[in-house]
Design a protein around this nucleic acid. Structure first.
Lengths: 325, 325
DNA sequence: ATCCAGAAAGTTACCGGTATCAAACCTTGT
DNA sequence: ACAAGGTTTGATACCGGTAACTTTCTGGAT
C-alpha cells in the first residue's frame, strides 16, 4: 500500500479511503490512486484491515457434514445473501462430536470472523463460553433449541416429526415404525416428536417400532430387515434420515414388498431424489434455503448494529404427500 | 496478550513462544504463562499472527458447487490431512463462471491464505495473474490441464471418457450415445475423450449420438427422450454427469425400456447411489478422496519449503462394471 | 479582502502478534 | 575459577492496514 501511495503521490490514508469509501476522495486523486493500484497489481490485505478495524467481512458456517446434499441449500441461502454485500463465507465441517465442533469454533473465533452460523444445537459448555465471551454474533439453525446461545432461524425437528407421524396416522396406518440414525442428536429429537404423536393418538409406545440404523442407503435396508424379522405387523415406516428412505424403498423392491401396499414409507428430508424414485416418497419439506438466507440476514443485522425484534425465528415445514404413503 | 504477559510477569514475546513453541520456554515460566492464559480466557488472534508472520494456516478450497455430493470426498480428503497438522480449511463455491471464480480467488488472496486448491482448470487470465503474482501455492485438481498454474493432482477427464467408451465398445455396443451437461467445461473435455475413442475404433462421429442436457435427474430423462426421438438405434448411453445416469435409468423404467437389454447405461461418477439402483450402474470410479488428500499434501510440501519432484500427479481412474451394461 | 464552516488530505498511534538481534543466564571443560 | 558456547528471555521494530485527530483547502457570506 505504501508503494501505491508513493506512486500516486498521496498518503496511505488517502489510498485506504479511495478504496473503502471512494466518495470521500476527490475525483482527481481517486483516479490517480486507482490507476496506481491497477498498475502495481495491488491486492488489499484483509488480514490487516480486520486487525486494524476489529471487524471482519467473513462469516463462518459450521455444518455436521459436507457429504450430505441436504445442507447444500442452506449454504446457497447464506451465500446468496452474503455475496452481493461483499461478505465472504467460510464453510467447515464438524462431525457429530462436540469436541470437534469446539475446535472448529475456536479456530473461527481465533480468526475473528464477523459472525457464525451453527447447524447443530448441542454444544459443549466450553464452546458456548467461548462464543459468548468473544461477543461473536451467532445463529443456530438445525433445530429450535430450548436454550439458544444467541439467535435462531430454523424449523423444529420435534414438531416436524410429530406432524408427519400424525399425517401417517390420519392416512390410516396403524403400526407406524420409526427409524433414526444411531447416536445422532437430531435423530433423538425427532424421536421425541414421534413419541408425542403416538401419545396424542393414545397409542402405546411399542419399542419394536423404534429402529436405530447406520447412515446412508444401508440404513434403510437395515430398517426393512428389522421390520421383517421383529415387527412384521408394521404397515408404515417413517425414516428420520436423508437417503435412508430411498434405501428402504430399494430394499422393499428387492424383497418384492409393495410400497405402499405392504409398507408405506415416509422421509424426513425432501431430497430431489425423493421425487424421482418410484413410487415417489412422501417427505417433510424443510426450509433449508430459507434457513440459510434468514440466518445470514439476522447475522448482518446484528453486525450492523440493528437490534433484532425476534431473535428466535421458527420457519416451519411442509408435508409433501406422494405415492409412497 | 499483554494482559497475559503482565499476569505471568513475563514479556509478550515469552507468551508468544510458550504458545507456539512450548519447548523453547522453560518449564516454570511456561506453566505460569499457560495458567495465566487459562485464567484470562485468552484466545489467540490468528489474524495478527498471520499478518506478522506473513503466513497463514488456512487453506482455501474452491469448488464449482457444493450442491454436488461428488465433491464431498475431495473435501474429506483435504480435511483429513489438514486437521491433524493444525491447518484450517475454508471451502467456497464458485459456479461455472470464470468471473465468479476470479472474485473468490481475489478474496482468498486478500486474506493471504497459505495455499489454494482449485477444482476447475479453466481460469480467467486475471485470476492466473493474481495467483502467480501473489506467490500463493496452488493445486488444480478437477482435470489435468495442458498448462498448469502451479501443481496438479487429478485424473484426466479426457482419458477417463475415452476408456469408458472403449469399454462399452469392447462389450459389444455398436451405437454409443454420449450425454453431457450443456455449457460445462468438464463436459466438453469428456466429449473429446469420447471422440478419441470413436476415432480409435474407426467409427464415424455421428452428431445424433451427442446429446446436451440440463443438470440433475432431469438431464437423464432428456437424454432418453432424445434417443427415443432422434436416434432409436443407440444401444448404449454414456452419461458424463453425476446423477444424470440415474435420471436416465428412471426414465427407461417409466418407458418400459430394459436396461441393458434395450439400452445400456454408464455413468461418469461413481456415486453411492449407482450401486443401489436396479440395475446397478456401470461407472467410472474417480479418485476423489485421493485427489483431496494428495492436493493437500502437495500444498503443505510447498508451503514448508520442500520442492516437489512431480508437480503434476495423475491419479488415474477405474472402470466399475455393473449390471447396467 | 476577510473570515469561517465544512470538506479533503495528512499525521500519528495503535490493532495484536512475531522476527530479529542483543542481553542475561546456565553449563561444561580445563 | 574462568572463558567458551549454548539456552532462555527481553527489547525493539515492523507486518499492512484503519481510527481519531489535525492541518490544509475550498468556496461562499460578510
Amino acid at each position: 500500500m505504501r508503494d501505491v501511495a508513493e506512486r500516486a503521490g498521496v498518503s496511505r490514508m488517502t489510498v485506504s479511503r479511495a478504496l473503502n469509501d471512494p466518495e470521500s476522495v476527490k475525483e482527481g486523486l481517486r483516479k490517480r490512486v486507482l490507476s496506481a493500484v491497477y498498475e502495481l497489481g495491488y491486492v488489499h490485505n484483509h488480514l490487516a484491515r480486520s486487525l486494524s478495524s476489529r471487524s471482519s467481512k467473513v462469516i463462518g458456517l459450521v455444518l455436521p457434514s459436507l457429504e450430505n446434499s441436504i445442507f447444500a441449500q442452506t449454504v446457497k441461502g447464506v451465500s446468496d445473501l452474503l455475496r452481493p454485500l461483499g461478505y465472504h463465507l467460510m464453510v467447515t465441517e464438524c462431525g457429530n462430536e462436540p469436541k470437534d465442533e469446539e475446535r472448529v469454533i475456536a479456530a473461527f473465533i481465533a480468526q475473528r470472523v464477523g459472525g457464525l452460523i451453527l447447524h447443530g444445537t448441542h454444544h459443549s459448555p466450553v464452546a458456548v463460553r467461548m462464543l459468548q465471551g468473544s461477543g461473536t454474533p451467532v445463529v443456530e439453525n438445525g433445530d429450535i433449541p430450548a436454550d439458544p446461545i444467541d439467535m435462531v432461524a430454523s424449523y423444529s425437528n420435534r414438531e416436524a416429526a410429530r406432524a408427519m407421524t400424525l399425517h401417517l396416522a390420519r392416512l390410516g396406518y396403524q403400526q407406524i415404525a420409526f427409524a433414526a440414525l444411531a447416536a445422532n442428536p437430531r435423530g433423538a429429537t425427532r424421536s421425541l416428536g414421534y413419541d408425542d404423536a403416538l401419545a396424542e393418538l393414545g397409542r402405546p409406545a411399542d419399542p419394536r417400532l423404534k429402529i436405530e440404523v447406520s447412515r446412508g442407503f444401508a440404513g434403510g435396508a437395515e430398517a426393512i430387515a428389522h421390520i421383517a424379522a421383529i415387527m412384521p405387523e408394521a404397515d408404515a415406516l417413517f425414516c428420520a434420515g436423508d437417503v435412508m428412505a430411498v434405501g428402504a424403498l430399494f430394499e422393499c423392491d428387492r424383497r418384492g414388498w409393495k410400497v405402499p401396499g405392504r409398507l408405506a414409507i415416509a422421509s424426513f428430508d425432501d431430497l430431489e431424489l425423493m421425487r424421482h424414485v418410484s413410487p415417489a416418497i412422501t417427505s417433510l419439506h424443510l426450509p433449508r434455503y430459507e434457513m440459510g438466507k434468514r440466518s445470514a440476514e439476522m447475522l448482518l443485522s446484528r453486525i450492523e448494529g440493528r437490534e433484532l425484534p425476534v431473535p428466535v425465528l421458527d420457519l416451519g415445514f411442509e408435508i409433501v404427500q406422494r405415492a409412497s404413503t
